[in-house]
Every structure is written in C-alpha cells, then in structure tokens.
C-alpha cells in the first residue's frame, strides 16, 4: 500500500512528550501515507491517545518534529489552522455540542471556520447525515440520541470539514456492546473510500480486516509495528504477545 515515492502525509520524527516528569511518548517515528489505515493499540496509559492528540496538536510535543502534508507543527497559528482543517477527529465521548441541534452541530464549524454560507452548510450537513444513515435525527438535540447515533453524528461532523485524515480516539469504548457495530460499519465504509485513518481502538476484528498496519504501544514506545496478519499470527515482542493473549482470551 505505502508508495515510497510519494511523500508521507504524516511524518513523525523522534517525537517526545512529557507531562511534568512523566514521559508519555518516547522517540516516536512514524510515517503515514495517503489512504493508509493505521490501528494503534496498547494497554491504558501506553501513550496511544497522546500520540494521535499530538497529530492535531491538542497536545504539544516537546521534542522531535511532526509534519502534516508538508506543514510542520509549531506554535505558528496559521499553520495550526491549516493542519486542523486537514485533520478531523472523533472522540471517545463523542463531544457533540449539547446546546445545538444535530444539524447545527454539523454546520457550526463549516460556517465559522470555512466561512461556508448557511444554506450550503446545511446541505453538506444533511448529505453526511444521510451517509451515516440518520438524517431523520437532524432537528433533535444530542442527548435525545443513543450513544451509537451520537458517535455517527460525530463522525459526520468531522467529515463535513472535508478532512484528508481522520483520527479516531477509542470511538467505541464508551458504547454499549450492541451499538459498537453501527459505528464500526461507518468506519469500514470510510476506509473503503480511501480515507486516511488512524484509529486507537481495541476492536481487533476491525484491525484485522481493515488496517494496513497495526501499531502496538507500551509505556510511550512503539513496541511492534506490522501488517495485521503478521501482528496477530506472529507477534515478535513478548509484551505484544502478553497483550494479545489478555485481549483475545475471552
């Protein structure tokens, strides 16, 4: 999949991140090419969320460089705006704006950030609501939807900004089991359309069938980095083996 002649869309070189004394990321090196689907897994506190939060600068890394489509992440505000327009994000707790209707949730950033006229923003919003199969909920408030529906709205909200990359931060962890599949289905659709995706998730079925590469992190380091078949059937590192045993033993 990764065409080495093309420049990577995301390039992380020797990235380090500290929270006070605690080192959350240790010398992370990672290239992601256009259209690639990466799954990041690992025990809690391993730095996997921090890794993707550094990519759209919700966290600032302390050392190393992160480049998104040729733009290096620094304190430069204009560069940051450009990067955030390019990178969408879906959160564990959906983070829909509770005081806005569903359709307004999808319109607000288009209007404010992209300066899209209201009517056009509404059209775009309805288009993506249909894609996640809940256009009939447009006028409701987030609290009136189920968790699975809310997460699909959150994905649609990210898509409205026409990003080139979408980051998923444990998108199914806060959901009741019966709602996980409706969200994963939307993610699989996106993957099939060629969206560049980085997913932090423990859904190993999704990783095996959709991912181009799987990354296992522990204590802030990338411990294992392989194609899914190799990762699941023939893991090299002891820590990966232990983790897989724990997570697949049920």
């Amino acid at each position: 999949m990764s065409d080495n002649k093309l420049k990577p869309l995301i390039k992380m070189i020797e990235v380090n991140k500290y929270f006070g004394e605690f080192q959350a990321l240790k010398n992370i090196n990672l290239d992601v090419h256009k259209g690639e689907r990466i799954v990041v897994c690992g025990p809690s506190g391993s730095g996997k969320s921090t890794l993707i939060r550094c990519i759209n600068r919700l966290e600032k890394h302390n050392k190393g460089t992160i480049t998104i489509d040729g733009i290096e992440l620094t304190d430069n505000v204009e560069d940051l705006d450009a990067v955030r327009r390019e990178v969408g994000m879906v959160f564990q707790n959906f983070n829909l704006f509770p005081h806005m209707s569903i359709v307004k949730n999808l319109m607000i950033a288009q209007q404010l950030v992209r300066k899209t006229p209201k009517d056009e923003a509404r059209e775009v919003a309805m288009h993506y609501l249909e894609r996640v199969k809940i256009p009939e909920q447009a006028k409701k408030y987030p609290i009136q939807l189920s968790g699975g529906q809310q997460q699909r709205v959150a994905i649609a909200r990210a898509l409205c900004m026409k990003p080139n990359i979408i980051l998923f931060d444990e998108p199914t962890s806060a959901l009741d089991p019966e709602m996980i599949n409706e969200v994963l289905d939307v993610m699989v659709d996106l993957a099939e359309e060629g969206m560049t995706m980085i997913c932090v998730t423990h859904e190993m079925g999704f990783a095996r069938s959709v991912a181009d590469r799987v990354i296992f992190m522990d204590e802030g380091e990338i411990v294992e980095h392989a194609k899914p078949a190799e990762f699941f059937d023939n893991p090299k590192n002891e820590r990966t083996k232990t983790f897989l045993k724990q997570i697949l033993s049920h």
Partner: peptide
C-alpha cells in the same frame, strides 16, 4: 472535551 472538539474542528 467540547472545547477540544471545537479545537479539532479548527475553531
């Protein structure tokens, strides 16, 4: 989390 979502959307 809502403010992070706003940031991620470029607000």
């Amino acid at each position: 989390g809502l403010l992070e979502a706003g940031s991620a959307l470029g607000m």
